[in-house]
C-alpha cells in the first residue's frame, strides 16, 4: 500500500512498484490509509509522514498496535531529513526510512527486501 498526498509522487510510486510486480493499493490521506490497510492487509506499507487528517506516524503506530496487522513491514517517506525525524519514525515502529527526494532504485531495493523478510521479525 502506498499512502501519499502528493498526486505526482503517488503516481510515480504506483508505477514503479507495479512495474516491479507488486500488487498495490493507494491512499491519499491517513484515514483512507487505515481503511485500505485493514481491508487489503498489504505485506509492505509505504507511508508519507506528512499525510493530511492522520500523519504517517499515527498510521504507523496504529499498525503496530493492531494485532491483526502484525508482521507488516513499514517504509516511511519524508521530506524532513533531520535526525530527530528519523528517531521519531523508528520510535513509531517503522522498519525503514527514506528521505525525499529518494533514488527510485534504492526505494525498490528496500521494498523488495522488506517484502522478502515479511513475517514476524
Amino acid at each position: 500500500m502506498i499512502a501519499e498526498d502528493e498526486s505526482s509522487i503517488l503516481l510515480s510510486l504506483e508505477f514503479l512498484l507495479r512495474k516491479a510486480g507488486f500488487d498495490t493499493r493507494v491512499a491519499r490521506d491517513g484515514e483512507e490509509a487505515l481503511g485500505v490497510l485493514t481491508a487489503f492487509r498489504p505485506d509492505v506499507a509505504l507511508l508519507d509522514v506528512m499525510l493530511p487528517r492522520r500523519s504517517g506516524l499515527e498510521v504507523c503506530r496504529f499498525i503496530r498496535a493492531e494485532p491483526a496487522l502484525a508482521g507488516m513491514r513499514i517504509l516511511l517517506l519524508t521530506a524532513k531529513g533531520g535526525r530527530q525525524d528519523l528517531q521519531n519514525g523508528l520510535a513509531a515502529g517503522a522498519d525503514e526510512y527514506l528521505t525525499k527526494p529518494f533514488s527510485t532504485h534504492e526505494l525498490l531495493e528496500r521494498v523488495k527486501a522488506l517484502a522478502a523478510g515479511k513475517g514476524p521479525a
Partner: peptide, 25 residues
C-alpha cells in the same frame, strides 16, 4: 528553513522519480 526545505523537496521528489522512470524504462 525547515519548512522551505520540505516544500522544496516535495516537487524535487516527483521530478527525480519520473526522470529516473523515464531513464530506466
Amino acid at each position: 528553513i525547515s519548512t522551505v526545505t520540505h516544500e522544496l523537496r516535495t516537487p524535487l521528489t516527483s521530478i527525480r522519480a519520473f526522470s529516473e522512470i523515464l531513464h530506466d524504462t
